[in-house]
């Protein structure tokens, strides 16, 4: 137990299991304050107690939100900003966009958006936007979005980015992970050099989590079980991610995509600046962030 991150606050989404939980544990061990976001009130409560046990002095607070709905994202962003304001120091040192999902069948959220596109891509996009004021107040702030090696399977069809008309769960997943890198690329471009905020996309590696198991056909679950058997523990992956979130020396790095704290090559499509801009504009429109201007369909 140490306190090197004392007085630092981080928001972690999907923070009740897998990589998100492991990252929260590492941050708390180092004395950081953690605002966790999870879907289940019960799990949030249990994890909050667990983290308090790890480091009684680290301020830990969990918020319950289902990030598949933008309505909830706005609500949780307000709660986070209020929480920070309540400490008298409305500063956020980092946001870890970790929450992610995989759905084999096409599910539309109540807002009519394809579930993986909503949770894996639009949620990080919108939550980041909402937290920019608090991030900008920090001397050095990070936005780390957990992407995946499967971004290489992604290929966004701009006529049907959510794959509504020819849905394939794995391709849809790959698209959202590709979108995570494109978002990071464009975000850094828009922030410009010298910004207090730096964004990175992380490849967590193949990690032993339950992402492929939740609510999917038995066969998809079985395939995932086999794949993850060669995976690494969540703690190992989370170390590389926390590095991106906290390491001061990489603030000026122009690398976008990292694995275990080492820059990696992302696919050619993930580094296409035109695609990144196009995705940004589309995402703004889908999140109602384009100042009410109405455009063509998504």
């Amino acid at each position: 137990m140490d306190n090197e991150l004392h007085n630092h606050t981080y928001v972690v989404t999907g923070a009740t299991s897998g990589i998100g939980l492991a990252a929260a544990e590492i941050l708390v061990r180092r004395g950081a304050g953690v605002i966790g976001v999870g879907r289940s009130a019960e799990r949030c409560k249990a994890v909050e107690a667990h983290l308090h046990h790890i480091h009684p002095d680290a301020p830990v607070h969990y918020l319950v939100a289902d990030l598949s709905l933008q309505k909830n994202i706005h609500q949780v962003a307000d709660e986070i900003l209020n929480q920070l304001a309540g400490t008298g120091k409305p500063v956020l040192d980092g946001l870890l966009n970790n929450a992610g999902t995989f759905t084999y069948w096409m599910i539309l959220t109540a807002e009519g958006i394809e579930m993986q596109w909503a949770v894996n891509h639009l949620a990080p996009f919108l939550l980041t936007h909402r937290l920019i004021p608090a991030l900008q107040a920090a001397p050095l702030a990070r936005v780390v979005t957990v992407s995946s090696g499967s971004h290489r399977h992604g290929w966004i069809n701009w006529n049907d980015p959510q794959l509504r008309r020819c849905y394939n769960g794995l391709r849809a997943y790959g698209n959202t992970k590709l979108a995570n890198i494109l978002f990071t690329l464009e975000f850094n471009r828009r922030l410009g050099t010298g910004s207090a905020i730096r964004a990175f996309a992380a490849n967590p590696g193949l990690v032993k989590t339950d992402i492929g198991m939740k609510g999917n056909p038995a066969i998809a679950g079985l395939v995932w079980k086999l794949r993850r058997s060669g995976g690494i523990p969540a703690e190992e992956s989370a170390r590389g991610i926390v590095y991106l979130l906290t390491e001061p020396s990489i603030q000026e790095s122009t690398e976008v995509y990292w694995k275990h704290g080492i820059p990696q090559h992302a696919s050619r499509r993930a580094l296409d600046p035109a695609a990144a801009t196009r995705l940004w504009v589309l995402s703004e429109k889908m999140c109602g962030l384009d100042g009410g201007n109405r455009h063509d369909a998504a």
Partner: peptide, 8 residues
Amino acid sequence: SSLETTYG
């Protein structure tokens, strides 16, 4: 509201 925002 989501359809109005997204698709105009």
